[in-house]
């Protein structure tokens, strides 16, 4: 993947409004890519089996040689070592910590070491210093879709909150500082907002119901723990729009932990970070056996890692949390069938 083609790849996301096809520039090799026929293939329920990888929540600081830099580097080499090689990588947000351009530039430099192309969405930590300006300059659109081997992939920015800063006269730095707190007292619940809801409706309008769909957002599409924004306030509308599909797999960052839920036709998986694990919030989980064990705070890699997701022809997915240390219970050590 030459630099120029990656830039094109990142730049040409949602310009067309509806499902964009990336054949040629998207795939590492033309043969691994059947995207041109994506929707039509899906109508006959055929996926050409493939694997993709997911990374998220690096929270890079604008501090040289920071420990989180090394953990992201490690996750990138881990993904590069996966065999067979993942066709591409998705990144689910919070690449930086305080929304600084230098954090995002550092993150992009590390992600560019991936041997396959990647697609990325913003998290709140990337965004609220300059309202996503630096992020968009580096990575392009905040929402996008593409077809790959018969699967329709969607990425959306789920961290948009109503303006809480103007009336209070907050500086961008103060606004970012508040958003950096998980339990922010003033920030309110976030979501994708009207514009992206409209976009989503248009995007899937002509996609047939038996098409396998995978959607990535920074936050979960269900009410896990709204106090920590382990939620997306307009997730009910998103779920309604996606209700016509036989099966949807949703993946999300932000929670920094293994968590699983099913709601309507959606199977939802929370992802490991490469920075620190969040504790499980004080709520009952329906799938409480799909959890990681508590981490040792003295081991800076405990509870962290990346992911690979393997899809077979019938859209059975094996979601594999690639935890650096051994904190997964036996039932999901080798992956979870989703």
């Amino acid at each position: 993947m030459k630099k120029i083609s990656r830039r094109q790849f990142l730049g040409m996301t949602t310009k067309a409004g509806a499902a964009t096809v990336f054949a040629g520039i998207f795939a590492p090799s033309a043969s691994s890519m059947l995207g041109l026929g994506g929707v039509a293939e899906a109508a006959t329920k055929k996926i050409k089996p493939f694997t993709f990888a997911v990374l998220t929540d690096a929270h890079l600081y604008d501090i040289a040689d920071h420990k989180f830099d090394h953990i992201l580097e490690k996750a990138v080499s881990d993904v590069n070592s996966i065999k067979p090689r993942p066709d591409f990588v998705l990144y689910a947000g919070d690449l930086g910590q305080s929304g600084k351009k230098d954090e995002l530039i550092k993150g992009k430099k590390i992600l560019d070491k991936l041997k396959m192309p990647y697609k990325i969405i913003p998290g709140e930590h990337d965004y609220y210093l300059d309202m996503g300006q630096a992020w968009r300059g580096l990575f392009g659109d905040e929402h996008w879709s593409f077809n790959h081997n018969g699967v329709h992939f969607i990425g959306m920015n789920s961290i948009l909150v109503p303006d809480f800063w103007t009336l209070k006269g907050l500086t961008p730095k103060e606004r970012m500082g508040m958003m950096e707190e998980l339990e922010c007292h003033n920030c309110g619940a976030w979501g994708v907002g009207e514009k992206q809801l409209d976009w989503l409706a248009r995007d899937v309008r002509n996609v047939s119901p038996d098409t396998p769909v995978i959607i990535m957002t920074h936050s979960p599409l269900w009410d896990y723990y709204p106090r920590w924004n382990f939620q997306t306030y307009d997730a009910p509308q998103i779920r309604e729009t996606l209700r016509k599909f036989d099966k949807v797999i949703a993946i999300h960052g932000h929670v920094h932990q293994v968590v699983y839920n099913e709601i309507d036709n959606i199977r939802s998986c929370g992802l490991l970070s490469t920075s620190w694990p969040w504790p499980y919030p004080p709520v009952e989980l329906e799938y409480s056996h799909i959890k990681q064990r508590r981490a040792d705070p003295g081991d800076f890699e405990d509870g962290l890692g990346g992911h690979d997701i393997a899809l077979n022809a019938d859209f059975d997915a094996i979601v594999h949390w690639r935890e650096f240390s051994d904190l997964l219970p036996d039932n999901i050590k080798k992956g979870l069938k989703v």
Partner: peptide, 8 residues
């Protein structure tokens, strides 16, 4: 608070 939101 990075690892212990709400003192959790």
């Amino acid at each position: 608070a990075n690892c212990h939101p709400d003192g959790s």
